[in-house]
Simulated assay, not measured.
Amino acid sequence: MASVRRPRMLVICPYPEGVAAGQRLKYEQYFDDWRSLGFDIIVSTYMDMAMWDVAYRKGHYPAKLFGLARGHMRRIRDLMRVARYDLVFIHMWVTPVGTSFFERMVRTLARRIIFDVEDNVILPEGQGGAENPNPLLQRMKGPGKALYMIRNADHVITSSPFLNETCLATNEKKACTYISSSVDTDRFLPATSYSNDRKVVIGWTGTFSSRPYLDLLRPVFQELARRADFRLKVIGNFDYALPGVDLEVVRWSREKEVEDLQGFDIGVYPLPMDDWVLGKSGLKAIQYMAFGLPAVATDIGTTPMLIRHGENGLLVKTQDEWLAALEALIRDPDLRRRLGVAARADAVRNYSTRAVAAQYRRVLASVMESVNG
């Protein structure tokens, strides 16, 4: 009796596996689940680790140009094999620069496409978003790449309800699904004692590209240091200094990610008040919640859908509100406990990989059934 051929999936994504939060804590952590459904999965990244190591650092232009060349060679290889796959899963773009040529070619050749998009990438270039440490790359970006994929994909997975509404109005098949970022709550476990027996640690985690959001709180932390005793812990891939504040800077690593985040007592999630952040998934808030931390977050976009003010975290808008919220949490361990315990319960119930896996399964089933191969 002949064996049934397993469906083949090609994943086209920007970054190496296991390094970028937008991939690690979204679709990457479901590969094993998709394999259990019968898919054979091949991942094709645009960047290799050599490119990743310099991509978000200033300068290094020769290395970046060589990285772009290597990435395009990989995409040329993908064009020659894409028709052999039953499903192509594209995260963000096929290539980061130039016109939508590669996106159009993949659409022409692929049997089925799921397009996974995050942030409000359909804003006109230069509106919103964090500082780009790659001015050369920024100038080379072609307009309309994401918009073309949103319009022509067989299904679009979005990072926020706001972005989902926009994509529904654009996608020709009206096939768009908002799927939240998620975390493995069996690995992301609370460790805080909700105690003031030691100095309270306020924490933030992110990358160079989101550093400007952390900078929004510089005057808040400096004023807070004059009112209360705390340590600020920054986990990222950049150096940081903040005069007048007891600061600990930790380089992110996958091996120590859980241990480092377990060192927080309070998580902060600052965002600017602009349209760009309407596409953000609230990943940092979800991470803090999984660790049982009370999160203080800017009241905009998806965040108030995750955090209920005074129940599982605190929502703020002004610098005075940031100061009041953080000072209250530093001084009141019982408040931290009440908010943190509720946040953890919400994370397990709504944003764990167990809770979210079924949403991806439904999208995969829908696309495989509705599109003729």
Rank of each mutant, 00 (worst) to 15 (best):
Met92Leu: 07
Ser160Val: 02
Ser100Asn: 14
Asp86Ser: 04
Met368Tyr: 06
Trp204Val: 14
Arg336Leu: 11
Ala355Thr: 03
Ala20Glu: 07
Glu118Val: 01
Ser366Met: 04
Ala191Glu: 11
Tyr351Arg: 02
Asn120Cys: 01
Ala290Ser: 10
Ile122Thr: 15
Arg218His: 11
Arg104Tyr: 06
Thr108Ile: 09
Gln262Arg: 15
Pro143Asn: 14
Asp299Met: 11
Tyr30Arg: 07
Ala285Tyr: 06
Val183Leu: 14
Glu321Arg: 00
Asp119Ala: 05
Asp40Cys: 08
Asn196Glu: 02
Met9Lys: 07
Gly98Asp: 06
Tyr194Ser: 06
Met368Cys: 03
Leu242Tyr: 05
Pro135Trp: 12
Ala325Val: 04
Asp78Cys: 11
Glu248Ala: 12
Val97Lys: 05
His309Gln: 02
Leu136Glu: 09
Thr45Ser: 15
Ile330Gln: 04
Arg8Glu: 12
Tyr360Ala: 07
Asn372Gly: 01
Trp93Gln: 07
Arg338Ala: 08
Asp48Met: 03
Lys174Phe: 05
Ile114Ser: 01
Glu248Asp: 04
Val4Trp: 08
Asp78Trp: 05
Pro304Asn: 10
Ile286Ala: 03
Thr318Met: 09
Ile300Ser: 04
Ala191Cys: 04
Val258Thr: 12
Ala297Arg: 08
Arg5Pro: 13
Tyr269Asp: 12
Leu68Asn: 00
Tyr148Gly: 10
Ala50Glu: 13
Ala83Phe: 09
Phe89Ser: 01
Gly18His: 07
Thr192Ile: 02
Val277Ser: 01
Arg251Ser: 11
Ile202Val: 12
Ser366Leu: 04
Gln262Pro: 00
Lys58Asp: 09
Leu315Met: 02
Met368Gln: 09
Met73Gln: 08
Pro219Tyr: 10
Asp275Ala: 14
Arg349Ser: 11
Thr166Ile: 14
Ala324Arg: 09
Lys26Trp: 00
Leu136Cys: 03
Glu17Lys: 13
Pro14Val: 02
Val316Asp: 09
Leu214Cys: 02
Ile114Tyr: 05
Asp346Ala: 13
Ser181Cys: 12
Asp32Gln: 13
Arg6Leu: 15
Gly67Val: 05
Ala55Asn: 02
Leu242Arg: 09
Val268Met: 01
Leu271His: 08
Ala328Met: 12
Leu314Thr: 05
Tyr148Glu: 04
Arg308Met: 04
Gly126Leu: 08
His72Leu: 15
Phe162Pro: 00
Glu165Trp: 01
Leu137Ala: 12
Lys26Pro: 09
Trp52Asp: 11
